[in-house]
């Protein structure tokens, strides 16, 4: 099938590019838009490394075709940074708690945490686990990731949510 031109908003910017219909949103973000922060882990929707925000919801970008994102709003890990490119509040909390090791699952974790805290600014531990349940981490055993989300929640609340 022929490539199609698509237009979507990514991290607050309108982006247009062509995409083959079989191209995943993951590969489109990484290779058409050069947003390499989003990572490929399994390409069958289990590991969560490719999680992005899609119209405000955390979704797996390996299970969406780029053409399906035409006209939609996408946030990647790069979009969690402040306007000047410095780490945003959740990213600061993950550094403070060392909620990562190799960094490969981290962008997906950060997006899932962001989605949680947007809807639930003061989550319980069970709510944190529920929110991260679709993101596999092989390095940390999750404890410091949970610590990081708790810490991020505090800073979210401090910043007025």
């Amino acid at each position: 099938m022929k490539p199609r031109k698509i237009t979507l908003e990514v991290n607050g910017r309108v982006r247009s590019a062509t995409a083959e219909p079989r191209l995943t949103l993951l590969d489109f973000l990484r290779y058409a838009l050069n947003l390499t922060g989003t990572h490929m882990g399994c390409e069958h929707g289990v590991c969560g490394a490719c999680t992005v925000m899609f119209d405000g919801l955390a979704v797996r970008s390996c299970l969406i075709y780029a053409v399906q994102a035409d006209g939609h709003d996408v946030t990647t890990v790069e979009g969690l940074c402040n306007g000047d490119g410095t780490p945003g509040p959740i990213q600061e909390a993950f550094q403070d708690a060392h909620g990562l090791q190799c960094g490969y699952c981290t962008p997906g974790m950060l997006i899932s945490a962001q989605a949680l805290l947007q809807s639930t600014p003061d989550p319980s531990d069970d709510e944190i686990r529920e929110a991260l349940g679709g993101n596999l981490c092989r390095c940390t055993g999750y404890a410091q990731i949970i610590d990081a989300v708790r810490l991020a929640a505090v800073s979210f609340q401090g910043a007025g949510g």
């Binding site: 922060g37 989003t38 780490p87 060392h98 990562l100 490969y104």
Partner: peptide, 19 residues
């Protein structure tokens, strides 16, 4: 103390082989 490597990883600016 913070882990030096973490900043690039949380910012999505690590450089893995796929990049």
């Amino acid at each position: 103390r913070r882990v030096k490597e973490d900043k690039r990883f949380v910012s999505g600016t690590g450089c893995y082989v796929q990049d």
